[in-house]
Design a protein around this nucleic acid. Structure first.
Lengths: 195, 195
DNA sequence: CGAAGATACCTCGTCACCGATGTATGGCGA
DNA sequence: TCGCCATACATCGGTGACGAGGTATCTTCG
């Protein structure tokens, strides 16, 4: 169903592949709108995530190959408009289904890691169902609302005001501001989705 | 100097090892304060980063081994206070120097990726020199101040208000709030460092 | 006494990602 | 016309990280 990922070897039991990587998600997401060739795809991914987490070319092309091998996308060679010949990539029906599945049932990592979460958000509109979108947003909201700190003394979380380390205080200050902004946005958006 | 990393094989030229991983930084950082055994170390790292990016045991122990092999830490076996015998880990002088070096000259990734950046911040107090701390903070400030967007139409960055996709608008809204909070904190802290 | 659960460490196979490098083509300025 | 840069794709070896197991000790509770 999901490419060659259902087969795990050796000491590994059969699972739906975890660790699916936000790069693949981004590829599927951008191709969902329109076919693109690799180089253009790379520029879009770079714009989306690269100032945070640059994507090496040597990572992109193997990822495309993986997705092709799994039947999620196909390529058509086209004479290069500007330079060398291009491979125009487009999603198969299976690829489109797979994107929607990954958006609807994101890995817990995609919820907790801000980088991955932003990638999910960037393509969440491709879920046609507002209820399904709301489910995903609520998972993020639940994560942000569970009490969590960065620093502990024993079992007790340390509050920003107690820290004499200005840098650790910064971490807490910034995290708090981010969280507040996002919780506000999530609530608003959930309201407007009629969830 | 930095373990066995100065030797690169085959098609690889000699470099100071990039991609040093925030896990190693966290290990060095926590051990800088006090010797710890692996299990306790894991709990502290978990508290620091795990609700965002969980650390598997199978990642921690090999990382400890790497650092030991590089001469950055040593272990002393101790009868287990509660259960199985522990390996108490402590930094060598070389390890202490290496932490300070990694903090003083962080990889660009450590500046741009919020997860890595928070790890740097969590231990930045271990740089004894306020000027050196200020240099690092200014790198982050410079990064946050350079104009960057997530979404483009052609070459023009798209502003939050123009987007009809509520989720992408969310990405921009949240990123903006975070950035504002952090820039404010950075300026304040730089002032108080006398930079 | 025996099972359960926390503590504590470890190995193995797999995989995504990386940097370095290679190979073309076409446009542009000196 | 020569070099340089952008376009466009690809391979290779190395490495950090992961999930799935395994081993052993000590405490707690029934």
């Amino acid at each position: 169903m999901y490419g060659d990922n259902e087969i795990c070897h050796a000491r590994c039991t059969t699972t739906v592949r975890q660790n699916a990587g936000m790069l693949e998600l981004a590829i599927l997401g951008f191709l969902y709108d329109a076919p693109l060739h690799g180089y253009e795809l790379r520029k879009r991914i770079t714009a989306l995530t690269a100032h945070v987490r640059p994507v090496a070319e040597s990572t992109l092309y193997p990822a495309i190959k993986r997705l092709e091998k799994s039947g999620l996308l196909v390529r058509a060679t086209e004479p290069g408009a500007v330079a060398a010949p291009r491979h125009v990539l487009s999603l198969t029906d299976q690829g489109r289904r797979e994107l929607r599945r990954r958006l609807a049932e994101p890995d817990q990592r995609d919820i907790t890691d801000e980088n991955r979460w932003f990638t999910v958000l960037a393509f969440l509109r491709h879920l046609d169902d507002a209820a399904a979108q709301a489910v995903v947003l609520r998972r993020r909201l639940a994560f942000l609302e569970e009490p969590a700190s960065f620093f502990y003394e024993g079992d007790r979380p340390v509050r920003a005001e107690e820290l004499d380390d200005p840098f650790r205080r910064g971490v807490l200050t910034i995290a708090r501001a981010t969280s507040r902004a996002e919780v506000g946005w999530l609530r608003e958006t959930l309201d407007s989705l009629g969830g």
